[in-house]
């Protein structure tokens, strides 16, 4: 098995998910938390879109049956999930702007005087 064969959509999706999880765990900036959530979402989208793919299958359009169809179910699920992801990100950013203007919070911290850190 060649090394490039390991770089499939599922594996990259899993790695992206854990990169986002790492960002959620370590970064204390709220904007970076929202970005990490978006990265996790992207990993999930990529995982779902490339799942159940067999080499040589054709897009599920039309009735031509010279080759097997790609599974259309994950694509149809992810179409809605992508738009919902945009909505969730927009909600998070708006709430962040509100909190920042009202309380001056930009970091997840118990010490409210701490305005900046290296994370």
């Amino acid at each position: 098995m060649k090394p490039l064969d390991f770089i499939t959509g599922e594996i990259v999706g899993i790695l992206l998910f854990f990169i986002g999880l790492y960002g959620l765990m370590t970064k204390k900036t709220i904007v970076k938390t929202i970005m990490s959530m978006s990265i996790m979402e992207s990993g999930i989208f990529l995982f779902y879109i490339t799942i159940n793919y067999t080499v040589g299958s054709v897009p599920p359009i039309g009735q031509a049956q010279e080759a097997a169809f790609v599974d259309p179910v994950p694509s149809a699920l992810m179409i809605t999930a992508i738009v919902i992801g945009i909505g969730v990100t927009a909600i998070g950013l708006t709430m962040f702007m509100h909190y920042k203007q009202k309380h001056g919070i930009t970091h997840w911290s118990r010490n409210r005087d701490q305005t900046g850190s290296d994370h």
Partner: peptide
């Protein structure tokens, strides 16, 4: 699976209403 689309549209509309109304 048209239920998915209905609730996705609802979700997008709720997020738009949130962006407009919960704003400093």
């Amino acid at each position: 699976r048209v239920f998915d689309t209905l609730f996705e549209a609802l979700m997008l509309m709720v997020s738009v209403m949130e962006v407009i109304n919960v704003s400093w």
